[in-house]
Amino acid sequence: MTAVLNINGISKSYGKVKALNNLTLQINQGEVFGILGPNGSGKTTTLGIILDVLNADAGSFTWNGEAPSKYSRKKIGSLLETPNFYPYLTARQNLSIVCKIKEVNESEVDRVLSVVDLISRANSKFKTFSLGMKQRLAIASALLGNPDTLVLDEPTNGLDPQGIAEIRAIILDLANEGKTIIMASHILDEVEKTCTHVAVLKLGNLLTHGPIQTILNTQEQVCVSSDDLEILKLTLSQIDGVSNINQTGGKIYLMLAEGKDSAYLNKALFDKGIVASEIGIQKSDLEANFLELIK
């Protein structure tokens, strides 16, 4: 696989605050890469540096193996923080300026406006737009020239539920076309539904990264309960293939090794003289996993 973006030991401080600490990451072609983290974890700082609006204090990065330049940025569709346009210009005029900068044919304007469903407002001034429309125009702008790589910073920010679903569908379409998408978000649901890989940041440090299933433990969990939870817990710990036992409320959650299912667990408990009052399978709690990660 070819690396689209290689980040090598990037650090950035704002005065005494260390916003990013020695970040090293590789993002490969075709990945939908989510950068997760709470507010102030360094997501936007990372994107700002790779898009050359922030100067890193240390470290380097390359786009497709080459040193970053304005030419590499012309081929990347980006949305960083707020949508930035001239308020007194219309949507079409604003996008036509971006076309000139990106050296893209102006016929692209109508295409991207249709994609984000703004074509009927093409000749309205940007200042008359609602927050959601501004966000959609920014996404349209990122799509100009049909770039192979997209950098999106909280793309569904400010959108209503319908808008969120529409943008998510656009992102998934792009991902299916094989485009590389780098996306920062703090909305776990969004990341789970769109990303193939994630990196988790906290206070500028990279906590972990890799395929989403392994990082956020999208693996299934088994939930068991019985009359005496203490004995149940003790017994469970003696059963082969059981791991990650923890008690929440009146239930015990655990994970089973590959090839073992709830029937196996039920039988093993029964053999040890314990009758479970409930055995159920549950999708792992993404939020809990995430909170656990950034603790």
Binding site: L51, V53, N84, F85, Y86
Partner: peptide, 20 residues
Amino acid sequence: NEFSFKTFRQHVIDGQDKVD
């Protein structure tokens, strides 16, 4: 205006540089 509308920043993101 380029600074208050953040359009200078956007131009850099879109593929201009400080020399431009």
